[in-house]
Every structure is written in C-alpha cells, then in structure tokens.
Computed example of a mutant assay.
Amino acid sequence: MSFTLDARVDARDVDLAITVQRGETVAVLGPNGAGKSTLLGLAAGLLRADSGSATLDGATLFDAATFVPPHSRGVSLLAQDALLFPHLSVLENVAFGPRSAGVRAAAARSMARDWLGEVDALEFASRRPAELSGGQAQRIAVARALAAGPKLLLLDEPLAALDISVAPAVRRMLRRVLADRTALIVTHDILDAYTLADRVIVVDGGRVVEEGPTRSVLERPRTAFTAGLASLSVLTGERTATGLWTAGGDIAAPSDLPVGTAVAAAIRPAAVSVSLEEPREVNRLRGTVRDLEPRGDVIRVRSDLLSADVAPAVVADLDLALGTPVWFAFGAADVQVYAR
C-alpha cells in the first residue's frame, strides 16, 4: 500500500502526480514557487484540488465526490516552525494527538514519554515551549507528530529554522525515526535529501520534472535546477566516438553509449580550472565570467556553460571580474556521461 496523488490546482497552475511507497521517505526539491507547498497542502487537506484524487493505504482522501478533512486523514504535517502549544508542557504537547484520538490521559502520557525518548528529549517533559531552544522545540514537534500515529508524515523544511550548529543532530534524529516510515519531506538542502530520502522528486513550474533514487537523480541531473542543487555543471549534446559534442565544443570523455545517443555530461566545479590563456588540456571551453560567488574557502566562477571552484588567490592573480573572458579546463576522467 502507498500514498498516491494526481491532482491539479488551476489558480496556481500546478498539476502533480506522485507516489510514495509504504515505508519510503521521498524528498521533494524545487525552486521557490514550484508547487512544493501546494503538494503538502493537498496531501494534508489544507487545500482543495480542482480535479484529481489522492489515496492513502487504499483509502480515498479526495476525489470528485469525496473530501476527507485534515484531522481524519491519518496525516501529520511538521512545519518549519515547531508551533507547540505554549500553554501546555512538553509532555502534554506530545500527548495531545493520542488524547484527541480518544486515548485515556494516562495511556496518552505514557505514549508521549515513549516518543520523547525516541527523539532524545525525555528530559524536557515538564518544560513549557518558551523554555526550549530551537533544536529542542523541533525534536518535540517531531515527537508530537509521530505520537499521533500518522500513516503519512509530511515535513516542510524541518531544519530550515535551526542554527547550523544544531541542524546535524536533529538531522541524525530524523534519519533514525523516519526509518521504515512513509514520509514526504520538502527541502532545499541537498544534504537532507542524501541523508533522509530513499527517493527524490524534483518539481518545477508546477510539474514533476525529475524523479528516482536519490543518488541517481542528484548525481545524474537532467535539469538546470537539479544540477545547480547538486553543485554540478551539466552539458548536453550527442555521443561521439571520443566523447560528446556540445554547444560549447567537443568534449573527450569515456562512455560505452552508442555513437549518436543524446547524452548529458556532469562535471564537478572542483575538477575545473580557470585560466586567461588557452590551456593544453584536451577538454577546454571558452566562457565569460557571469558570477563570482564565495563558497567557504573557494570562489565559484560561473559562466553560461560551466562553473569552477578556485582559490581566492587565483581570482586575484587572474584579476577576474564579471565579463572577463576565460578558459575552463578539465580532464576526461572528470566527466560523467549518461543518456538523456
């Protein structure tokens, strides 16, 4: 059994079809305004579709004749902000779901303690939300969502509001509690996708444009957005006897694909060098600097075709600026070729 949704929202020009298998965590990636929040709203029952349907474990959530209200769907939504009830203790916050389902107070509190233990937050049981840090509050929010016993867990950027020093611990906690649980997680962070998701769906312009196993999608992207998210440059073209032909020129690269196949080539910016003079490498492409972005201890030099991560000293020595014509070079072994 699984969660399936195939629905359209006319006002937002969103037309999405997805499936999440039981026990599978699927990450939904996409630029702002792509339709990710619309997807969660449809699944949670916070938004009505103009057409289409959704089912969860064989039960219809909505179609032309049916609309199950949010509280009756067996779906829990975990938002960016913890949204804990400020007047309740942590224990009572987590017990709220079972109590709402008719579980007696003592049993609900026992369940709440179990879930607080699962998220390493039992020590906070007697505190009020105002006494918690951001990371602690998000752990409690996870426990509260799971204590309701959802068949489907929806997570909307669960780590976005957390300090960078806190996020890794919460991410490890999520990885543990999401194991074998049916979940849909919207995120902009590629590390969330790699760490938490069995499969990835990429949404753009209100449509699913890529989907598949996490590593397959992120290491062999087919759209510019996914390539940028995965920190890859992707060139498209046609397979030749020695590599591939692209709009930027011929690229030498190993591949066993038949000559004439429509292909894409993924190149990591760290494998690309930048120079003002034409280099000797077999793979060299001409470009114009369109952007210089500091990224930790390197500067990402972008052109219309390629990106390169170089040391700040290189940028200074070459006197790079927007509009500077440069050469990009990389080895044949640094190119991953795959069919489009």
Rank of each mutant, 00 (worst) to 15 (best):
V14W: 02
E24N: 03
N93M: 06
A329I: 11
T226Y: 01
A308M: 08
S51L: 01
D163I: 00
D114V: 11
A11C: 07
V274N: 01
K36D: 11
S233M: 02
D163A: 02
G33M: 01
R128P: 13
R128T: 13
A271W: 12
T288K: 12
G260T: 05
T66W: 07
V166A: 01
P158I: 00
A253T: 04
V103P: 13
L56K: 06
A197N: 10
D114G: 14
Y338G: 04
A333C: 11
L146R: 04
D50P: 10
A65E: 15
M173A: 01
N93V: 10
D156L: 01
L152R: 07
V200R: 04
W327A: 04
P98H: 04
L91M: 10
A125I: 06
A241L: 08
P158W: 04
A321S: 14
P69V: 00
S303L: 09
R171H: 02
D309R: 07
V272L: 00
F328N: 05
L276P: 12
D63H: 06
P129W: 05
P258A: 02
L29D: 08
S76G: 09
V119A: 03
D291Y: 12
L88P: 11
V26D: 12
P168A: 00
P31C: 05
A137S: 12
R73F: 02
E123P: 14
A247E: 15
A311W: 13
G52L: 05
A27I: 10
S100V: 14
V272T: 00
A313F: 09
L40K: 05
D114C: 10
F62M: 03
A82R: 10
L196G: 08
L132Y: 03
L83Q: 13
R340T: 15
A264L: 10
G23E: 03
D291W: 12
T261A: 14
P129R: 07
D204Q: 08
